[in-house]
Design a protein around this nucleic acid. Structure first.
Lengths: 215, 215
DNA sequence: CGAAAATTAGAGCGTTTACTCTAGTAGAGG
DNA sequence: CCTCTACTAGAGTAAACGCTCTAATTTTCG
């Protein structure tokens, strides 16, 4: 693994632990390389964050993409949010320090907004396909469906920070499972019991398996 | 209004807009006072944030306190979360920049955790009292009730950042109303239609009125 | 008024920041 | 062996940081 890759991974690790404000010297020291070395691989500090954001967006969008489906299975539905929890935990500082990131750079702002907009849109599509299957008795207007997906995004991206900051957790598998439970609770009233049961079982099962994309 | 009060308000204003990372010189310039003046009124930069956190906690806890009630009216229930939205919007940077705040100082961490713990506890009490009234058909285990209140906290504290960062809003009354709608959507499945209807009407009505505590 | 106290301004301190620049190493191809 | 390219180290820069200090000003009160 080259230093470029080490820098990215080290930055994620350190920023997840201490917030996006970690400096270049702290990062270099953490990695055991010289501060100047960073600037051979990246134009500036912000370029590191930008690449991390891109990776996160790519990972998440690949998981949430259900545009090829006309109807969504409980298995696929579960994989959306089990996979989502994994990705959002891995890159959690992006959401914990969102205000700092966005107010520091204009191009990051645009990328960040596009990212969240696309994700919420994908969630909405998944929900509509799932609701077609679920045929729940509880109706949602179009505006409320958007709000529901935004709520889901808020819990999804907010829980890691909540667990870390408010509860002082150390961010292990247990915390990811708890995040899943929070999302489950949110979804439950809006799908049929049968669909919900199937999704829950699938979620637990998929969560027990190691993620696919890890080499 | 003395400079001490001006500093607090200016800090809230500036940090809400740009994140908690605003420096002492930027703050002084924003207020039209000298940087050194800050240190007459406050021991150090962190003391300013600590006082803001205390104020926020006091304001919110006063609004959420239902410990004197044995049963909660729709009016009181609505005032909890209408008032809560107001407070959390006013101090929104505390939640947007929580990771940065907490990782910078140990005593702030303790205060922040106590704050959120108490708030979620108060929410849980309000919910249990409301559910006694509402007698909904949808049961919640104790763990799920906690998760529900944590979800509420996440949306409550997360929405301002979402609106500001992800949607690029300018944080006016409309955004607070939208936050209310998000919370409403969360609550709806867990109370009876009659209670929900009463709470919704009360919420709209209370929201239209100016806040009581403003002198 | 006049003295004491409270408040303010602003220069300046040491430290840290993101970043640049130059000297130098490691390995591949000829 | 030599050279070229990819990469690394580390000293050094200007600016910004939180903060201290002193002198001046305003307010308070006998």
């Amino acid at each position: 693994m080259g230093n470029r890759e080490k820098i990215i991974r080290g930055a994620i690790e350190l920023m997840n632990a201490r917030g996006s404000a970690v400096g270049t010297s702290a990062l270099a020291e953490h990695l055991g390389i010289s501060p100047g070395n960073l600037y051979y691989h990246f134009r500036n500090r912000e370029a590191i964050v930008a690449e991390i954001l891109t990776r996160c967006a790519d990972d998440l969008h690949a998981i949430l993409d259900v545009s090829d489906q006309s109807e969504i299975s409980p298995e696929r539905f579960a994989s959306c949010y089990v996979g989502g929890v994994r990705v959002l935990f891995e890159y959690r500082f992006l959401f914990s320090s969102a205000l700092e990131l966005v107010s520091s750079d204009a191009s990051l702002t645009a990328a960040y907004r596009k990212f969240s907009e696309t994700s919420v849109g994908q969630l909405k599509l998944a929900l509509s396909l799932a609701r077609a299957v679920a045929a729940s008795e509880r109706a949602l207007t179009d505006d409320d469906a958007r709000r529901f997906c935004q709520n889901m995004w808020l819990i999804w991206t907010g829980w890691p920070r909540y667990a870390q900051v408010n509860l002082g957790r150390d961010m292990d598998q247990t915390d990811q499972m708890e995040c899943l439970r929070h999302l489950t609770l949110l979804i439950e009233p809006y799908v049929t019991p049968a669909f919900f049961q199937a999704v829950s079982e699938q979620a637990v099962q998929q969560f027990a398996q190691p993620p696919k994309t890890l080499a």
